[in-house]
Amino acid sequence: TGEEYIAVGDFTAQQVGDLTFKKGEILLVIEKKPDGWWIAKDAKGNEGLVPRTYLEPYS
């Protein structure tokens, strides 16, 4: 389980392990790392690192 967040901007993977997403996408945050990069999963089940500055809590 995780917390749902909504993307407030588009993000394109910079390196292997990053997750590309579009503004408005709902992501499930699995782990919040202290460096500001969180592990998240998208609706298709893809998992990767995302920058927390692009996310806001979804309710």
Rank of each mutant, 00 (worst) to 15 (best):
T1P: 15
T1S: 14
T1R: 09
T1C: 05
G2Y: 10
G2K: 11
G2E: 10
G2V: 11
E3I: 14
E3C: 04
E3G: 08
E4L: 12
E4Q: 10
E4P: 09
Y5T: 01
Y5S: 01
Y5R: 02
Y5G: 01
Y5H: 06
I6H: 04
I6Y: 06
I6K: 10
A7D: 00
A7W: 01
A7L: 02
V8E: 03
V8F: 04
V8W: 05
V8M: 13
V8K: 08
G9Y: 15
G9W: 14
G9E: 14
G9V: 14
G9P: 00
G9R: 13
G9A: 14
D10M: 03
F11G: 02
F11Q: 03
F11D: 01
F11I: 04
F11R: 10
F11H: 09
T12G: 06
T12C: 04
T12N: 11
A13Q: 07
A13N: 04
Q14N: 11
Q14R: 13
Q14T: 08
Q14V: 12
Q14S: 09
Q14G: 11
Q14C: 06
Q14I: 12
Q15S: 14
Q15A: 10
Q15N: 14
V16G: 12
G17L: 05
G17E: 06
G17N: 06
G17Q: 07
D18F: 15
D18A: 08
L19W: 02
L19N: 01
L19T: 01
L19D: 00
L19G: 01
L19H: 02
T20G: 12
T20C: 05
T20D: 08
T20Y: 04
T20R: 04
T20V: 04
F21E: 00
F21C: 04
F21D: 00
K22R: 14
K22N: 09
K22T: 11
K22Y: 10
K22A: 14
K22D: 04
K23N: 06
K23M: 10
K23W: 06
K23L: 08
K23H: 08
K23R: 14
K23Y: 07
G24I: 01
G24V: 01
G24H: 06
G24A: 04
E25M: 08
E25N: 10
E25T: 08
E25R: 02
I26F: 06
I26Y: 05
L27A: 01
L27T: 00
L27H: 00
L28Q: 12
V29E: 00
V29Y: 01
V29H: 00
I30L: 13
I30T: 10
E31I: 11
E31Q: 12
E31M: 11
E31S: 14
K32P: 04
K32M: 08
K33Q: 11
K33N: 14
K33D: 09
K33W: 08
K33P: 06
K33S: 07
K33H: 11
K33T: 13
P34S: 12
P34G: 13
P34T: 14
P34M: 13
P34V: 11
P34N: 14
D35F: 07
D35M: 05
D35N: 14
D35L: 06
D35H: 07
G36I: 05
G36K: 04
G36F: 06
G36M: 07
G36V: 04
G36E: 07
G36T: 04
G36P: 04
W37H: 08
W37V: 08
W37P: 05
W37A: 06
W38R: 01
W38L: 03
W38C: 03
W38F: 06
W38E: 00
A40E: 00
A40L: 03
A40T: 03
A40W: 01
K41I: 07
K41G: 03
K41A: 06
K41M: 10
K41V: 12
D42V: 02
D42Q: 03
D42W: 00
A43I: 13
A43Q: 12
G45H: 06
G45M: 05
N46I: 10
E47L: 15
E47R: 10
E47S: 08
E47H: 14
G48C: 02
G48A: 02
G48I: 02
G48T: 01
G48Q: 01
G48K: 01
L49I: 15
L49K: 15
L49N: 12
L49E: 05
L49H: 12
V50W: 00
V50A: 09
V50E: 00
V50S: 02
P51W: 08
P51E: 09
R52F: 15
R52I: 11
R52V: 12
R52G: 07
T53P: 09
T53F: 06
T53C: 07
T53L: 10
Y54A: 09
Y54T: 06
Y54W: 09
Y54V: 09
L55M: 06
L55V: 07
L55N: 00
E56Q: 10
E56N: 08
E56Y: 09
P57E: 09
P57S: 09
P57R: 08
P57Y: 11
P57D: 05
Y58G: 06
Y58H: 10
Y58K: 13
Y58I: 12
S59Q: 14
S59L: 12
